[in-house]
Deep mutational scan, measured.
Amino acid sequence: MQRVNMIMAESPGLITICLLGYLLSAECTVFLDHENANKILNRPKRYNSGKLEEFVQGNLERECMEEKCSFEEAREVFENTERTTEFWKQYVDGDQCESNPCLNGGSCKDDINSYECWCPFGFEGKNCELDVTCNIKNGRCEQFCKNSADNKVVCSCTEGYRLAENQKSCEPAVPFPCGRVSVSQTSKLTRAETVFPDVDYVNSTEAETILDNITQSTQSFNDFTRVVGGEDAKPGQFPWQVVLNGKVDAFCGGSIVNEKWIVTAAHCVETGVKITVVAGEHNIEETEHTEQKRNVIRIIPHHNYNAAINKYNHDIALLELDEPLVLNSYVTPICIADKEYTNIFLKFGSGYVSGWGRVFHKGRSALVLQYLRVPLVDRATCLRSTKFTIYNNMFCAGFHEGGRDSCQGDSGGPHVTEVEGTSFLTGIISWGEECAMKGKYGIYTKVSRYVNWIKEKTKLT
C-alpha cells in the first residue's frame, strides 16, 4: 500500500490518463441519441435557420407576430419608411378606419389613436360632414345658397324668414311668412316636400332668348283662358290664391305678392273693366268669414305684352289694390325667389296649380277651390304637342294621358313649387288646347323671366 501511494504521488498524470480511459469505455446513459432527441424537440425550422439574422431580410411573422416588435424591426421587413409607417399605425392600436367614419364618399386613412378623412370636392370637416359648395344638395341650405369668396357655403332665406341657429334652416321672422300653410287642420295635408338634388348652379339658368321682337298675326285659340281631375282644397291650404270678379264672377285667378299687390295673367284683364279681388276665398257660393274683398285701382301688364300681336306672350300683369290686405292664416303671400332659384325650383319637376275653373272641358265651374299636382314636361315634348308657338318664356306641365289639367277660369292662378315646406311661385296658368285632352298640356308663363320686374313694381313704400 505504501508503494502504491508513492507511485500516485510521483505520477499524477498517469492516474488522470487511467481515469479518462475508464470513462470513455463506459456506456453513456444520461444523453439520448440524435434521433430520439429530435422526437422530443420537434420544432419547425425557421426561415433563416442556421444563418445569422443580421444578414437576412426581415420576416413579418418572425419579427412582429411571434413577439412584439419595434418600429426598427418592422422597418427591416418593409425596407421602406412609408410602408412601415402605414403598417405601424394599425399594428400599434388597430384600424381606426374600420367603422368607416368618413361621410359623403370620403376616404379614410388610419393613424395612431386617430384617423384622417380625405374629402371629395365640396366637403370638409373631420368626417367630411361639412358642405362647402352650393353645387351639392344646395349646400344643405333649406332655401338659398351662395358661395363666399373663400368658396364656403353661405345660406340665406327669402323675405319674412331668418336663418336658424344651425345656419342652414329657415324659420319665420314674421307672423305670416310667405308660402307657408298655417291653418292647423290643413298642415297635415301639406304636399310632399321637395329635397334639393345635386345641381350645376353655374349652368342652372337656361341660355334662352326671349323672342321679344317676333311679330306674329293673332292666333285663334280655343278655350285658351284655361282644375280638371283635381281635388277639393281645404280652407287655408292655398292662402296665396285669390279669385278675380268682373263682368262675371271667378273669371280668373291670381296670387298675393304682398298686402297691396296681386300677380295674374295679362290676358285676364281689360282696361276700363272694374275688377274686384277676393282673398281668403274657399267656396265661392258661401260666406265663410275668411274672405277679404278689395278693388283694383291700377293694372300693370308687362311692358312687352301686346294682345294685338299675341294674347299669351309675356302673359303676366300686376294688380294694385285700393287697401292693403290683412295677412292671416287664410290670406298669405306666395314666396318669389330670384331668377336663378325660381328656375331651379321649376326644374324640380312638379308643381301645384289651383283655381275655381271648370271641372271638365266646357263644363261647370268649381264651387270649392280645386288643386292638382302636375309634372313638368320637357321642352321637346311640349313643342311636338301643339302647332302653336311655345315661346321661351312659357313652359308645359300636365299629363300625356289627359284627364287632369287646369281649365277655363283658372287662368292667372299660381303654379307653385314647394321647397322644404315653403311654396314659391314658378308659373302662372296661361293657356292650353281644350282641357285635359290626351297628348295636350297646360301652358304656363315662366315666372323666372319676370321676377325682377315683379319685385321692382310691387315694392311697398
Rank of each mutant, 00 (worst) to 15 (best):
Y312T: 03
V451F: 03
G13I: 15
S114M: 04
I297G: 04
I454L: 07
H282E: 03
G272M: 07
H415W: 02
D410A: 08
F78T: 03
Q185C: 06
F251M: 07
G229Q: 12
S423P: 02
G363M: 08
S350Y: 08
Y22G: 05
E401F: 11
V227N: 09
E67C: 04
E259I: 05
N166L: 02
P44M: 10
L319F: 03
S49E: 15
S204E: 13
N452S: 15
N306I: 05
M8D: 08
L460A: 07
E401A: 15
Y441D: 01
T158Q: 11
Y305H: 05
A37W: 04
Y161Q: 02
D93K: 06
A397P: 01
V269N: 01
E76Q: 11
G13E: 04
Q185I: 12
D315S: 03
S187E: 08
S107V: 07
I316V: 08
G230R: 09
N135G: 14
N310H: 11
N328Y: 00
K39E: 13
P120K: 04
F144Q: 02
P197I: 06
E434T: 12
H314E: 03
S187R: 13
T290I: 06
W240I: 01
R379H: 12
H415N: 01
D410K: 15
G236E: 03
S354F: 07
R449M: 14
C382R: 02
D410I: 15
V243G: 04
K455W: 05
N452F: 04
I7Q: 12
T381M: 11
S25R: 06
Q370E: 04
N343H: 07
P172V: 06
C335S: 01
E54M: 09
Y47I: 13
P333M: 02
V278D: 03
H282M: 09
Q370H: 13
D93Y: 07
E420L: 11
L14K: 03
T29M: 14
A317N: 00
S406R: 11
P120L: 06
T81H: 11
L321T: 02
L244V: 06
R294S: 02
V199F: 13
C407F: 10
F123R: 04
A173T: 15
K152C: 05
H314M: 02
V56D: 04
Y450T: 01
R191E: 14
T264N: 01
K347C: 03
R62G: 09
E53Y: 09
G253L: 09
Y341C: 03
S156E: 11
D131R: 06
E124T: 04
A26S: 10
D95I: 06
K109H: 10
K45A: 12
D378A: 09
E259D: 06
V326F: 06
G432S: 13
D405W: 08
K168V: 09
I336F: 04
P175L: 08
T29K: 10
L346P: 02
T417G: 01
E61Q: 10
W453N: 01
T386Y: 12
I309K: 13
D150F: 09
K39G: 12
D212T: 15
K459P: 04
D200R: 11
R43H: 07
G106T: 00
N5D: 07
N245F: 05
G58H: 14
N343V: 03
C141N: 01
I214K: 12
K146T: 13
N59C: 05
N393I: 02
N104L: 00
A149W: 06
S169W: 06
C102R: 00
